[in-house]
Design a binder for these strands. Structure first.
Lengths: 255, 255
DNA sequence: ATTTTGTGTATTGCAATGCAATACAAAGAA
DNA sequence: TTCTTTGTATTGCATTGCAATACACAAAAT
């Protein structure tokens, strides 16, 4: 008997199968999924069979390899359409994108990470730069630090304790004290600046979006390239535009 | 004993619970989910409990209502990142968006529907216009007709037989013979034009993207507004740009 | 070309899991 | 305050999912 009698273990196994694709791999054989998931071969046979019937996986007839199915996109559509922040923020993101002529993103706060929900690209795109659903750590993203700046010290400590402080670039800050110092600066300014910490060559400004209880729920980001900007110019010219956009969003939240 | 001994019924029930949100509703109580899904109250208790633990649902502490969880976005990210068409098509979509200054979308072919995978907005956005994952019927979208134009008659008949031919606007074509006639015209021109058939006030051009076996897998769309364009001007000026972009995509596919 | 190995599919007895009936607590409505 | 509805907790039990196994097929090795 499991400890949690309400928990349906089959669903977790199905998610384990789907998350074997989190590495970015385009397709896998049944045996590869069994290895990657740690599940028994028969279990993988049942789950791949069922997930394929449900549209969450697709099986290539000739190669017998599995890829993620298009139903995965439909579920995210249901989410995005239902979240009132997305509808309210989209015109503001588009307007900010036009004004600053750089990439503008909106991310959602989720435990120790942010998760991109609106992505407006610019000419400096790189593969994956405009994909919704990408998850990034709070601690080394401008938007993540802006969110942390709105939390109390105990919550920040807990987040840092449960974060994998691994470098995404050679410039990623990893020392918790230095991260806390950046969060303090963010709290003072109302926005964060990150230089090449999550993506090489990228400058990012981020400011938190709060709910009616003044708790952070999301962040707005502007991303530019060090080949176009010095960090000082980037901050001087674009931070005011970012703060203006966020004020509009946060003001509407209180109504 | 069920007919399909490999099928894991619990996964289907979980999807049934998640699809109760396909109506666009922002949140639901446990009882509402039970009614909408047709499942027993205890089953809904178990599935909502488990889906919440897995991040696919979120439970509001005060109201005890459920909303879709952010994990739904992450699954779509895994899909979009893994599909090579998305990476290849994204710069072409951005370039076309710049050239024509209207909304440009890429959709994937999925049975009797298309499913938007890349959406580049313009100033004429309406709520939901830039959301990835939206599903639309083939028969009344320009991109859908462009895809159908690449299929044989038996396949088209099958699609029309299994489509819900319900009007999305007062202009939606519903007569299968008229739809087939539009598909024929599309086959001749290499693109389809739809006038207010799926969204009021919207003009759309669509052309099919094919794979190495010359089978349609996706479509590229340009969307504009009847307040800005006559249908004839829209077609004359933008169809050539669309065809050029699709030729680039289809040429790369053959390499 | 043949043999060996690995992978995918099919089957089935069985135990654990998910079911649903039920009771109770809590919240909301009258 | 009382009644009704909803959410949560519990538990006996039947069905479902497990996994061992066998076999077909494909791929690799000889």
């Amino acid at each position: 008997m499991t400890q949690d009698r309400l928990f349906v273990a089959s669903l977790e196994k199905a998610m384990t199968v789907l998350y074997t694709f989190s590495s970015g791999i385009q397709s896998q054989s049944l045996s590869e999924i069994a290895i990657a998931s740690g599940l028994d071969k028969s279990a993988v046979q049942r789950f791949t069979h069922t997930l394929t019937k449900l549209g969450l996986l697709e099986k290539h007839e000739q190669t017998r390899r599995y890829s993620l199915g298009k139903k995965t996109l439909e579920l995210s559509y249901f989410y995005l359409r239902a979240d009132p922040l997305i509808e309210r923020a989209t015109p503001i993101v588009l307007a900010l994108r036009q004004r600053c002529n750089e990439r503008v993103n909106l991310s959602l706060f989720d435990d120790t990470t942010i998760l991109y929900a609106i992505r407006q690209p610019s000419r400096h795109d790189y593969p994956g730069a405009s994909l919704v659903g990408r998850r990034m750590p709070l601690h080394c993203t401008a938007g993540g630090r802006a969110i942390m700046a709105k939390l109390d010290e105990a919550h920040i400590d807990d987040i840092l304790a449960r974060s994998e402080l691994t470098p995404l670039t050679p410039y990623t800050l990893l020392d918790p004290e230095r991260i806390r110092a950046e969060v303090c600066k963010t709290r003072e300014r109302g926005y964060a600046l990150a230089v090449q910490e999550s993506v090489p060559g990228e400058l990012t400004l981020g400011a938190a979006i709060i709910n009616a209880q003044r708790q952070p729920i999301a962040a707005l980001h502007i991303a530019g390239s060090i080949s176009d900007w010095s960090p000082a110019d980037f901050e001087d010219k674009l931070a005011p535009l970012l703060l203006e956009a966020v004020h509009i969003l946060n003001h509407n939240m209180r109504l």
